[in-house]
Design a protein around this nucleic acid. Structure first.
Lengths: 242, 242
DNA sequence: GAAATACAATCCACCAGACGGAAATTCATG
DNA sequence: CATGAATTTCCGTCTGGTGGATTGTATTTC
């Protein structure tokens, strides 16, 4: 009856029916990134916009339970208990497991960096796994960092914005000097759930090379999609030992 | 003045000054393991001991924020936002990064499974990374699952319970038919922070083999310790691209 | 096809416990 | 030794989290 969605709620801070403190704790955990694995209390308070006392209590809770731990320097890093969750999250997803060999194969055949990304929200994706080119000049992506869906090849692939040949090519638009080719991975309903890509310096790329890489990507992405769907549950490479 | 630690606090449930709902949310997330990546609501409620309504609200919160997502089957799995945290947690730790090549080298030279584990609590450790033996009969460990410190070689290494040669050997005590050799990894203060091990079927092991593997482990563990401490902050293999 | 069972979502009154301003404490700095 | 910044602790306020009960929905059983 009453429009219950008239509240701002754009910040995703105060969604009604949400457990605020739980979300705050997780937001704090999200402040720890690959580039900043070690954070101080007031930094965290500023970044999350929480009162320092609240931050202190939440952090204290997380430390007490082992999700974070305090360094000698007085700042905080992930604790062992987060590791458990992290491993479950990554290795529990068959996508991550199955993509490993495919990425390696692509990396070895092209000599360039091969990436796997999944959608992260309305307009970002994150790289979840990558195999780096052995070449000294190479494209370096940031694992775990959100990247925009628009203006990137991997984003186009995730959005399904493909050319007639079934993949997406982008030569130095968003990131200058970078060429990227990407193809989508689909689930049993044909929905795109992820994408794999090859990224390389623009000067090593050409139309014909991009086309041949595009072919490879489509093949590998297709195989990945198949493997993903053919094994609804099976756990990879764990045999009971008793 | 007053002994504030006289409270039981063994359950870690109701530590005073802790944010209960935050811990509950994380406990729920911990229910998702490699072996059970997909859980239903009532399962979770039973496992955590929470009321189903509370569980429902917490889960709803986590789903709404993207930390979990609902499958078509109605159960829950990790969402993309957890991936971000998981990657930061794993790749942010230089230990994990640096151990990769060492484990591969050990696996290749011995032909057996090589493992990296860190302490998880007073008397458990968890395997955080492993490279599996290519042989058909091999020891399979459970990534992310807690294993006891007592009665395992990797546990002995983490506890510093080493023989005169600087490593720990265990031939089929806790797990029958399994041989394990482990060596500790130390930080700058000489504190043991992790351990690496080789695990294999007992029938392929012998005293002399164990000794030679022990040597290798000590060398690799030593190198790993050095690398870990020589680079106080540097981030692995990320060159700015700009 | 109907009844039974299990599971999930929603409601609501209660009040525990989370919140944040401010004070106290510790740590770095000039 | 004084100053400033960062962190922890305290405590009154009152929000927002809780869980029993209800309703809704899917799955199973006979």
């Amino acid at each position: 009856m009453d429009t219950k969605a008239d509240r701002g709620a754009a910040t995703a801070e105060t969604d009604p029916g949400s457990v605020r403190s739980a979300l705050r704790a997780l937001e704090l955990l999200e402040c720890f990134t690959i580039l900043q694995p070690e954070r101080g209390l007031s930094e965290l308070a500023k970044e999350t916009g929480l009162a320092t006392s609240t931050t202190s209590r939440l952090i204290g809770t997380l430390v007490g339970a082992g999700y974070l731990k305090k360094t000698e320097a007085g700042s905080y890093v992930f604790g062992p208990r987060m590791l458990k969750i992290a491993l479950a999250c990554l290795r529990g997803s068959s996508l991550f497991e199955l993509a490993g060999p495919r990425l390696l194969s692509l990396r070895d055949r092209t000599g360039e960096t091969a990436n796997l990304a999944v959608r992260n929200g309305p307009d970002t994706a994150i790289y979840v796994r990558l195999e780096e080119s052995p070449k000294p000049i190479r494209h370096n992506t940031w694992l775990g960092q959100p990247v925009p869906l628009h203006g990137t090849a991997i984003g186009a692939a995730i959005l399904g914005d493909l050319d007639a040949r079934g993949y997406a090519v982008l030569m130095g638009s968003l990131e200058p000097d970078v060429a990227a080719i990407a193809a989508p991975v689909r689930d049993n309903q044909g929905e795109i759930v992820a994408a794999i890509s090859i990224t390389m310096p623009l000067y090593r790329a050409s139309e014909t090379l991009a086309a041949s890489i595009g072919e490879m990507l489509c093949v590998e992405a297709g195989r990945l999609s198949l493997e993903l769907n053919s094994r609804p549950r099976a756990l990879p490479a764990i045999t009971t030992m008793e």
